[in-house]
């Protein structure tokens, strides 16, 4: 038993080193045959994916319900911490990531993005009681924060360096920790994408306020698939779904419901600004 476990580990490590991923024919037809599409996400990301009481809700849940309806399959959600979501996609724990994630050059090199499903330009959130921050450049000389590995943090660092005196940027493991530290007064503002910022301020108007306008380069959210040939048909089907929902107004309805406003979205982002 113990030997077998060890052999298994040796074999796993070995095959990983050799890059022997199990071959898959076509992700979409496999999912159709099984009647289930597995979608990976993180559930600490209102308004896209969050837990309301005992229910998993959000923009993503509504969107993928529509995908499931038009492709004739059930949606099975797998919720991981964000650090684990992209590794989970690569180890085939699921076939697409809801997230969503900001479409960036670096990510496009490794993954396939769907058509944009939301605007995610960076916005500052501050304590509602703090009158000293009225516009993004008011962070000069103060401490601000953002989630490690996020596009928002990259943009925030640029903003922090451009003001005089420069702002100090602190990095956190996620939005949860960033908000908690702002509530505790260790930072004066945190960088979030616009929809997340609006959701925070809407949920806790006593605690948080959005600092407008958004800053940095215009960025868009997309869903993420693997970059292999087997995933191509699935990603095309999701893109077709986005296009259909834009045309018949369902997308605008979802945007209104979850973001409180509708935004024009490009059909695709091929050359993101960062």
């Amino acid at each position: 038993m113990t030997r077998r476990a060890l052999l298994l580990f040796a074999f796993t490590a070995g095959s990983l080193a050799l890059g022997l991923a199990p071959a898959r024919a076509d992700v979409l037809s496999d999912a159709k045959a099984a009647g289930v599409l597995k979608v990976g996400t993180e559930t600490e990301f209102a308004p896209f994916d969050y837990i309301d009481g005992d229910k998993h809700v959000g923009f993503n849940v509504d969107f993928f319900d529509e995908v499931g309806k038009s492709l004739g399959m059930k949606i099975e959600w797998v919720a991981l911490p964000w650090d684990g979501v992209l590794p989970g996609l690569e180890s085939s724990k699921f076939d697409i990531v809801a997230g969503p994630a900001i479409i960036t050059k670096a990510r496009m090199q490794r993954y396939t993005f769907s058509s944009p499903i939301g605007e995610g330009t960076v916005t500052l959130v501050k304590r509602a009681s703090d009158a000293s921050i009225q516009k993004p450049t008011d962070i000069a000389g103060r401490s601000v924060g953002g989630g490690r590995g996020s596009n928002q943090l990259v943009q925030l660092k640029e903003l922090a360096a451009s003001v005089s005196p420069p702002a100090t940027v602190r990095e956190y493991t996620g939005a949860n920790e960033t908000q908690a530290d702002m509530a505790a007064g260790r930072i004066v503002a945190s960088a979030m994408s616009l929809p997340n910022a609006l959701a925070a301020a809407k949920r806790r108007p006593d605690m948080f306020a959005v600092v407008l306008p958004p800053f940095g380069v215009k960025a868009y959210f997309g869903y993420i698939g693997r970059k292999d040939a087997a995933s191509a048909s699935l990603m095309q089907a999701v893109d077709a779904q986005v296009a259909a929902m834009k045309t018949d107004g369902r997308m605008a309805k979802l945007q209104q419901k979850w973001f409180g406003a509708t935004t024009e979205l490009p059909a695709s982002v091929t050359d993101p600004a960062s």
Binding site: S15, L16, P22, G88
Partner: peptide, 14 residues
Amino acid sequence: LLLFYHLLPAIGIN
């Protein structure tokens, strides 16, 4: 935990 979850699928044990 991460090994069992993310590595085993590489040898077909998901």
